[in-house]
Amino acid sequence: MTRRQPALAAGRVVPPSGFTARLTLVSAAAMAFLAVFALALSMATGRLASRWNDELARSATVRISAPAGQMAAQTAAVLEVLNATPGVASARALSAEEMQALLGPWFGPDLPLASLPLPQLVEIVESAAGIDAEGLRLHLAAEAPGAVLDDHARWRRPLVEAAARLRFLGMVSLALIAVTTAAMIVLAAQAALAANGQVIRVLRLVGARDQFIARAFVRRFTLRALVGSALGTAAGLGAIAALPAADSAGGFLTGLGFSGAQWLAPFAIPPLAALVAWAATRAAALTMLRGIR
């Protein structure tokens, strides 16, 4: 008989379990694959929320509706007020061509712009300090009655909230995946422990400590979870990397994925899955062992 390391010996005392072992491996892989997507969803919506917040918060629009005769005068008055307002980095009236470009997607390129009573738009770029929207509104009302300030807060807030909610759901999905993985491994470990009841009793009778018996099972399930989730994570990352590239105008669907250092986050999935498997199997084994003297 050859000399053998105790850890390997502990693994050998439990008979090999072909089919259930593969099931654990496949389930761990599937869970890791899903976890990669949940993580990608969380990170993509997180990025989206902060991008909307940043970009939209730093711009505002003043819309001037006035009779044709007064338009030029009110525009000048609005620009004058804006240039004197703290927190405004720059303010600029949109030209007819720019208005045409904005309206083009809705009305087509042949829109006779000059014949329509369109409001004049003034684009404001805010400085980092931001503007006092209420104060500016009052000021504008006094100087140019046809001017309305839109700081985008009204439609920005629900979008940012939706993105934040999606991000939260992504996190909940990750937590659910972790819990399901633990439950699945506990079930598999309990099945293995029950199937090996005779082996465990024999080991106990010849003087095996609980740690020794538990280790035989814990080792197996931890390794299976680690290998399975590594395969699943690799497949998930491959699938995300193979998604069509997101352009700057892309919505949240094409933006699904990781950017920069975020690509490192999925690599935490296999060690975490192994940790969950370790804790779950250990708890199941020690609970079962308490029933055997």
Binding site: P6, A9, V13, L203, G207
Partner: peptide, 12 residues
């Protein structure tokens, strides 16, 4: 087996 579970190697 009693040697194995005690963490000792059997002398062949």
């Amino acid at each position: 087996l009693p040697l194995t579970v005690a963490g000792r190697a059997a002398d062949a």
